[in-house]
């Protein structure tokens, strides 16, 4: 039987996708945190047996279509960081929130590097703040994302 509670995970990912395409003023666009990456990092850390690489791949494709990037550009980045996360999740789970935020920063930086590297190969140059901005903001909001999704997971009794 498919657990209805399990739907919580896709729903949060849809919410993340919505936040990803929500209109922002021009100056704020390059600081938009990668919501999808944050949500996937949480779920693959908390429930690594349910949310894994295939989730990352499909979500990446959704983002690629939503943002008009090459199909596979975000998938590649997300698959890489979720792979790292899956292999480290037991150590990361027991870290403090601040420590986790630092770790998430590194993951988001890898994600960003991969995406922008491909942009760069297509001869589109990006400003430095576009590179550092989203991971920094992502790091700062990680504790809230973590607490929110953890409470949601406990409410839905997923483990």
């Amino acid at each position: 039987m498919i657990q209805l509670n399990f739907l919580v995970i896709p729903l949060t990912l849809v919410l993340a996708l919505t936040l990803q395409i929500l209109p922002l003023p021009d100056w704020a666009q390059i600081y938009r945190p990668d919501w999808m990456a944050l949500a996937l990092i949480y779920w693959s850390m908390a429930l690594p047996k349910r949310v894994g690489l295939w989730f990352a791949f499909v979500c990446g494709l959704l983002i690629d279509v939503a943002q008009g990037t090459l199909l596979g550009q975000h998938s590649l980045a997300l698959v890489i960081i979720i792979f790292i996360n899956l292999n480290l999740h037991q150590r990361i789970r027991v870290m403090s929130l601040a420590g986790q935020a630092g770790y998430v920063f590194v993951l988001l930086l890898i994600n960003q590097t991969s995406v922008l590297w491909i942009e760069g190969m297509l001869h589109r140059n990006t400003p430095l703040m576009a590179f550092l901005g989203p991971p920094l903001i992502g790091m700062m909001i990680w504790p809230w994302v973590f607490i929110l999704l953890r409470d949601l997971r406990r409410k839905a009794q997923l483990s």
Partner: peptide, 18 residues
């Protein structure tokens, strides 16, 4: 957990191909 190498390489290859 499922962070094993085989699906990882498969998906990376799939992304790059697409």
């Amino acid at each position: 957990a499922r962070g094993t190498l085989a699906p990882f390489f498969l998906l990376v290859a799939l992304s790059i191909t697409s």
